[in-house]
Write a protein that binds this DNA or RNA. Structure first.
Lengths: 107, 107
DNA sequence: GCGCCATTTAGCGAAACTGCTAAATGGGCC
DNA sequence: GGCCCATTTAGCAGTTTCGCTAAATGGCGC
């Protein structure tokens, strides 16, 4: 799902909401970082193993990240690989942050 | 307050937490944007007037933003001016986002 | 000092979030 | 088919967040 956020400004704002909400939790930010430095793809198990909280809890965090479109899932047999959507993270947060850059620097 | 976040990594992570938590709420992001496009400084009244929610609610949002160090307060007589801390927003969020940039591009 | 104005603090109920344990799904293997 | 494995879904208590209304603070003008 994760709202395609094409040109529709309403959709884009919804997407922004979901993304910033997802980023609000330290564990979720860390999941993204972990993913990033492990090549951008890990199975759910690998991710859950490196976290203090229980399996299902991590699973829910992953679900939120997926709904925000920050990761996507690849079903490979009985494993599920989570893939970091770097472009989307960068596009959305970067675009928002750009509003605060000095004039004449937006893109 | 707003944690000076100098070199101490622990302090920096706390600061990051507060900042991303503050950014999680749409109203707070909008307050920042409004501030940015009105020259970076507005009185609390000016800000509250442009929002749907009640005065005290907005005041609390401002308090959170201040604790995160994203705005600072200047007391001028009986008015309070909120000043956008662009540098801090950019430094913290930008630095975090940079982890996801292509290799060899981090500053 | 008294009253007014701008703003914050206190206190409350409703809703959302987080973490857990227990049970369900769905694919692979014999 | 039957079983195990990886992972998700359900259901539940505790905490936090959000918005509100009502009351307090603190500066300014008379």
């Amino acid at each position: 799902m994760a709202a395609p956020d094409g040109g529709d400004p309403r959709a884009r704002i919804d997407a922004e909401d979901r993304i910033f909400a997802a980023l609000a939790h330290p564990s979720r930010r860390q999941i993204l970082l972990t993913l990033r430095f492990r090549g951008g793809r890990m199975t759910a198990g690998e991710i859950a193993d490196r976290f203090g909280c229980t399996w299902p809890t991590t699973s829910r965090h992953l679900g939120l990240l997926r709904q925000a479109g920050l990761v996507s899932v690849e079903r490979r047999g009985r494993e599920r690989a989570y893939v970091l959507e770097r472009a989307r993270l960068d596009a959305c947060v970067g675009r928002w942050l750009a509003w605060f850059a000095d004039e004449g620097e937006e893109e």
